[in-house]
Nucleic acid binder design. Structure first.
Lengths: 215, 215
DNA sequence: CGGTCGACTGAACAACCGTTCAGAGTCTCG
DNA sequence: CGAGACTCTGAACGGTTGTTCAGTCGACCG
């Protein structure tokens, strides 16, 4: 009985996956009708299952977050700080997830904050371990450094996506190009720095000396 | 005769400025009616002057680009690469422009590409001068390094804005907080790097040796 | 078999959007 | 003064959106 013309999943799961795909490709302004069409169902059924478009969005957020957690535990290889996206992109299975996350940060909102905070927390732990192991230099403010590295890592992806938009919402080629173009400059910056001397840093430390531990 | 209840500018200019303000605060999905209300005119007049919402958007793009050019020539103090936004934020006059640019990169499109390319070109020239002056280390691929530095500089602002959203579209406080939080980590990274040795970079150079000059 | 419940459809509704348009007001110039 | 060319209004139109709802279908159960 090959009745499953579209997929073997539940209609609910099919709608959820279609929504993640369309949200990731077109942003969260993607119409409910387009999601319904991609899932092969009627617009009414989407509301029937998820209550509203926001409800669908919430379920997608949770599902994506769960997928990330799985991916992290599945392959917890020590990756570079802020390289969560690049890591995910390696597995083609997670391509829609990457698109969804990029759109989430572009759009703002709770998922964006949650995601950035989670990445910062992970980066802080990773950096502390690497500092203890002697692979990474200590920082005068490890917490702020972790947040900064996550911001530039995630932000670089956003800017790169703007320069080289993915075709049809497929982020795999875009992220491969990202890695190809930015690996060398990133490694140069991370190992050699940018400036030839420490005059600017020393000047900053001199004027901003007093308040290092405040919130 | 203090009849100018809203402003002394032309209605056309008032609409343009209101659009830049609302686009910068709410994104380009801001309704024409909201822009018209803020400018103190009717929705029909907006179309009458600019043909369409896209026409208004195009005029705003040009105007913002012209403002940037003015700001550059007005104070062409050698700023850090990719620090165009921070530089603009210093002058409160340019606060709406900063919001508009952030929204432009978030939304994508022609202005985003134009802006990123312009910043990259400026950064490349600035870096070349600084390298010649011995202030900045040379790179194995100066062009890619310039693009990368712009991407992380602009991207860090985007991520930071997502973590600390501006209230009512006023980016001044947000960007001040950005400078306050990220100056130390950025200076650390730029002067000292991140890694303690060059093993990762050397490994990358070893395997990726052949194609350095391809597009 | 009759009945109930959930999945599901698709037409319809209300809200909002960009845009149109007929007309009112105002200014200029012959 | 009067004709024309402006700016400007605000109601209205068509399109798209999220959502509702009456009703169909099929599976399960007593």
């Amino acid at each position: 009985m090959r009745s499953a013309a579209v997929s073997d999943l539940t209609a609910r799961a099919r709608i959820r996956d279609a929504a993640i795909r369309r949200f990731g490709a077109d942003g969260f302004a993607a119409p409910v009708r387009a999601i319904a069409a991609e899932a092969g169902v009627s617009p009414g059924l989407v509301i029937h299952h998820f209550g509203s478009k926001d409800g669908l969005r919430a379920v997608c957020d949770e599902h994506v977050l769960r997928l990330i957690r799985e991916a992290e535990t599945e392959a917890f290889t020590a990756s570079a700080p802020g390289d969560l996206l690049g890591h995910l992109a390696e597995l083609d299975r997670y391509a829609p997830v990457v698109g969804y996350l990029v759109q989430a940060v572009l759009a703002g909102g709770d998922l964006a904050v949650t995601l950035l905070e989670r990445m910062t927390r992970d980066a802080e732990r990773y950096l502390a371990d690497a500092v203890a192991a002697g692979r990474i230099r200590p920082s005068r403010d490890p917490s702020r450094r972790a947040a900064f590295l996550v911001d530039i890592g995630m932000g670089a992806v956003l800017s790169f996506v703007r320069r080289h938009p993915p075709v049809d919402g497929d982020y795999r080629a875009t992220l491969r190009a990202y890695a190809s173009a930015n690996s060398l400059p990133a490694l140069e910056l991370y190992t050699e720095g940018l400036l030839t001397d420490a005059t600017v840093l020393d000047a900053y430390l001199a004027i901003d000396d007093p308040p290092p531990g405040s919130e």
